[in-house]
Amino acid sequence: MLEIRDLRSRYGRIEVLHGITLNVQSGEIVTVVGANGAGKTTLLRCISGIQPVSAGGIIFRGETITTVPAYRRIRRGITQSPEGRQIFTNLTVEENLRLGAFLFSDDRVDRDMEDAFQMFPILREKRNLPAGGLSGGQQQMLAIARALMGRPSCLLLDEPSMGLAPLLVQQIFDVVSGLKARNVTVLLVEQNAFGALKIADRGYVMETGRITMDGPAEALIADPRIREAYLGI
């Protein structure tokens, strides 16, 4: 479904992705784990089109989208819940969700919003309040729900568990694994490697802008190098 070929990207003169190659098959949950500053966020920014690509390509459902502007990639089915949530703090929860479906104005918008409220009941309670007043966990739920409002076939999640209490982390990971049933393919970026690998089908390990390992999630969890470097076991 999604194929990244030898992707390079830079901030100014400093290259931070040195040729990333990975793929995500339809229906999979694939995770990219790696330490601070490895380039995971940059990779997702490239896929969403908000970060310039200096070489290589991004192929989505057989079409090269490397130069397609960000706002057109949503319609093709790629949405993202970005690092740091990036919700619209001055708008209400409901307005945030509505904007998630900015490209759509059919009946499905209301149904999807109802789905979002079922998935995260707290958002229904707070639907008319400014999103800036939500707690970190609630903002994370809102960011994920907003990304789902865009009707993704491929959802990019950037550190959805960051800064959350353990109970919430579990709830978020449960939601992510539940996306399979909705035919949403997931590319999940996490520092919480253990949690991510537990719900993923396959994983990639990223270190300073390169993929250093990849394989089925169970194999990675069992790998002694991973256990030492990322799982702290």
Binding site: G49, Y71, R72, I74, T79, Q86, I87, F88, L103, R146
Partner: peptide, 8 residues
Amino acid sequence: LAAQLVGI
């Protein structure tokens, strides 16, 4: 940034 990510 978020505006771009929702397709604006």
